[in-house]
């Protein structure tokens, strides 16, 4: 479960101070599917980075379970990311020179999983997203939807508690979007994942159990 207490994040940009998050307090229970919407520059991605232990708040407290992410050193944050949090990005962020199988394996590298087991688990993850026959293709040989499936397999192969998705369907056509959303919903349902999706797409947001709206750094609940 995520708990955010009075989280503020400010950036210095040249002479200006940007308030990306203003005094945000909220709780995300374990296993919930949450959609975050809002205008560009409203603080969605910043909030997702705080939840993903990629950055620390300027003030306030974020905790994931018992772990205080706001006061943790970099190495421990890295460990949390390696074990408990999976990421899916809008641009897929696959490593272009590695095959689908090897891209998935990169998520198991920081866990010190032996090579044999790493290969087996990566293969299983690719099969679970319907790409068992594309394991040895590099990203440039895959379609956008297939690349996003590889990215989802990479996020799930380590069996995280949380999956954070930043515009996961932003670069996909409508049909592929629905396929990806169906896949994410299935994984959320089957594995009990906490799933947080940042999206501009209301069709995607409507499929979430809970919808948050972030504007000018302030969060509001939506029915």
């Amino acid at each position: 479960m995520y708990t955010l207490e009075n989280v503020t994040k400010t950036y210095r940009q040249k002479e200006r101070t940007i308030h990306a998050l203003k005094d945000v307090s909220l709780t995300i229970p374990t296993g919930q599917l949450v959609a975050i919407q809002g205008p560009t520059g409203g603080g969605k991605s910043t909030l997702l980075q705080m939840l993903g232990a990629l950055d620390r708040p300027t003030s306030g407290r974020i905790s994931l379970g018992e772990a205080d992410l706001s006061g943790m050193p970099d190495a421990k944050l890295g460990r949390i990311r390696a074990t408990e949090i999976g990421f899916v990005f809008q641009g897929f962020n696959l490593i272009p020179t590695l095959t689908a199988q090897e891209n998935v394996e990169t998520a198991l590298e920081p866990l010190g999983v032996p090579a044999e087991e790493r290969r087996r688990r990566a293969t299983e993850a690719l099969v679970s997203v319907g790409l068992g026959d594309r394991a040895h293709h590099v990203p440039s040989e895959l379609s956008g939807g297939q690349q996003q499936r590889v990215a989802i397999a990479r996020a799930l192969v380590k069996e995280p508690d949380v999956l954070l998705a930043d515009e996961p369907t932003g670069n996909l056509d409508e049909q592929t979007r629905d396929e990806i959303m169906a896949l994410l919903e299935g994984l959320h349902r089957d594995r009990g994942l906490t799933l947080v999706i940042v999206t501009h797409d209301s069709a995607v947001a409507r499929r979430a159990e809970r919808r948050l709206h972030l504007k000018h750094g302030t969060v509001t609940e939506r029915a």
């Binding site: 990421f87 990005f89 990169t106 920081p110 990479r154």
Partner: peptide, 16 residues
């Protein structure tokens, strides 16, 4: 940059 940012996001250490 994007590649290394991604690897850090999935838990790769600076040392690695």
């Amino acid at each position: 940059t994007r590649e290394f940012g991604t690897l850090k996001a999935i838990g790769w250490s600076n040392r690695r």
